[in-house]
Structure formats: structure tokens, C-alpha cells
């Protein structure tokens, strides 16, 4: 009997702990949403209401109408898409090579990837800004996209190589035996199977780009991404603006994670070796 009770108590404890952690992780998101969706007037009241009694889109609307916000949003999307396309174009072939070929230099290459992944390339934005100034790329979305591609590329290679490893070589060999050339076998047999994983890698790149702020702030003046815009106007903007900005940056995160739930462990977990 007491054994059963102990097991029961254990289950309850686990649940309590889970709920507590969930509150810690979830409550701040609730609060920023609450703040961003309150009217200006109610944000000026003190103490703030903890329940959504006064929902209004006013704060968000004012934020979106501020100078540079819509533009920043557009720039963010643009930078994210360019980075995504570039890092797939460069990373997928490399990931395939790492997965399939035992070439000399494979180990050093992987080490090189880990190194570039482990070092804070963002802080190189400062010298990079000079390089871009010299090459005429400064203050363009391309400049930021190049940096973000460099940030996401090692991970893209690691993720895609893990995905290609999971597609048995025999599948490809079978296609070649039955008359497909190597590129055709890749397109007909490997790519369709790897597509979900490649999409995950793409989204990873987009999230990385969406979140990066230092490089984006250093490499641009007028073509700022949304985070860079929020950061640069942080000091002179009212609280309501900051809350709205925080919320605008958090919402995509909720969506990304919801979409990528199945691949989380692959993206951030197993392949980070």
C-alpha cells in the first residue's frame, strides 16, 4: 500500500514540477502579449491589470505605424529569404558530400565547420562592415544576408548531412542500376525523402536570421532589419513601443516552433556534434 502511495506521490510531484516549469516558461509570453495588446492608456495605469480586461490593437498599430517598422519587417523577411536560399544552395551539396563520400579532408572540413559554428562570427561584423564599405555592399540586405548565411551555413551542412545519411545509399544505387544518372537519382529518389529535413534546415536559417541583431545593426544604416530597428530606437522610445516590438519579435518564434516541433531534436539536438 505505502509503495503505491509513494508512486502516486511521485507522479503528483512530477506533475507539479512540470506545471511550475511551464508557468515559468509560458507566463512571460502571456505577459508580453498582454502588454502589447493593451491600449496605451491602460499601460499608463498602475498597477497593471493581469487579465486581458482591456484588449486593444492600439499599441500594436502605433508600433507598426512608426517609421522604419514596416520597412524593417520587409527587410527582415528579405534578409531571411536570401540567407535561406544562399545557405541551402551552399549547404545542401556540402551536406550531401559529407554524408556520402569518404573524401580526404572530410574530417578537417567537419572540424572547420564546428570551429566556425563555435566562434562568435557576429562580432566580426565590425571589420566586415569595412569590407562591405569597400565593396559597395554596405547598408544593403545582401550584406546582412551574407553574414547570416555564414552564421547558419555550418548548421545547415550538419543538419542536411544527417538527413542524407538517413536516406540509405542503396536507394540511390537502385535508381542508378535501373537507369538513372547520378543527378537524376538524387532528384527522383534522395531529394523527395530529404525534403522535410531540408525544410527544417531552411527554417532554422530563417529563424537565425530573424533573430540576429548585432550584425544587422552594424552592417546597415537605412536598410535595418526589424530587430536592428527596434534596438537602435530602443533608448528613445516609450515603453509601449518596446513591448509591442518585443511581441512582434516573439510571435514568429511561436509559429516556428509550432511548425518545427518534430524536427527540434534534429535541428538543435543530435546534429550539434
Amino acid at each position: 500500500m505505502s509503495r503505491l502511495r509513494a508512486a502516486r506521490r511521485r507522479t503528483i510531484l512530477i506533475h507539479v514540477a512540470c506545471v511550475a516549469v511551464t508557468l515559468f516558461m509560458g507566463l512571460p509570453i502571456y505577459l508580453i502579449a498582454l502588454a502589447a495588446l493593451s491600449s496605451r492608456e491602460s499601460l499608463n495605469r498602475f498597477p497593471l491589470s493581469l487579465l486581458p480586461t482591456d484588449v486593444s490593437t492600439e499599441t500594436m498599430r502605433v508600433f507598426l505605424d512608426s517609421t522604419g517598422v514596416i520597412g524593417g519587417f520587409q527587410n527582415s523577411v528579405e534578409v531571411g529569404l536570401i540567407s535561406l536560399a544562399l545557405s541551402l544552395a551552399l549547404g545542401v551539396p556540402a551536406g550531401y558530400a559529407v554524408a556520402r563520400y569518404a573524401f580526404r579532408g572530410r574530417e578537417p572540413y567537419q572540424l572547420f565547420l564546428l570551429l566556425t559554428r563555435a566562434l562568435p562570427i557576429v562580432v566580426l561584423s565590425v571589420p566586415l562592415a569595412r569590407v562591405f564599405l569597400a565593396t559597395g555592399l554596405y547598408d544593403t540586405t545582401y550584406a546582412v544576408a551574407l553574414l547570416h548565411t555564414a552564421l547558419a551555413l555550418p548548421t545547415t551542412v550538419l543538419i542536411t548531412s544527417a538527413i542524407f545519411v538517413a536516406v540509405p545509399v542503396e536507394h540511390e544505387e537502385a535508381a542508378m542500376v535501373f537507369g538513372a544518372s547520378a543527378p537524376r537519382a538524387f532528384a527522383r529518389v534522395v531529394l523527395p525523402q530529404a525534403l522535410p529535413g531540408i525544410a527544417a534546415a531552411a527554417i532554422f536559417t530563417f529563424v537565425t536570421s530573424w533573430n540576429e541583431v548585432l550584425g544587422a545593426a552594424v552592417l546597415t544604416l537605412n536598410r535595418r532589419t526589424l530587430p536592428a530597428q527596434v534596438l537602435s530606437t530602443l533608448a528613445d522610445s516609450p515603453l509601449a513601443f518596446r513591448f509591442a516590438g518585443g511581441f512582434a519579435l516573439v510571435v514568429p518564434a511561436l509559429v516556428f516552433i509550432a511548425f518545427m516541433r518534430r524536427y527540434l531534436l534534429n535541428m538543435w539536438g543530435t546534429t550539434i556534434r
Partner: peptide
């Protein structure tokens, strides 16, 4: 896992509230 995709700027603003 949600904070995985949240930038440190956004996290700062969230906790600012």
C-alpha cells in the same frame, strides 16, 4: 522549447514588461 526561437533582444523586451 519556444524560447529556442526567441532572440536575446526579444527576451529582454519580454522581461522588461
Amino acid at each position: 522549447c519556444v524560447p529556442l526561437a526567441i532572440s536575446d533582444l526579444a527576451a529582454g523586451l519580454v522581461w522588461l514588461s
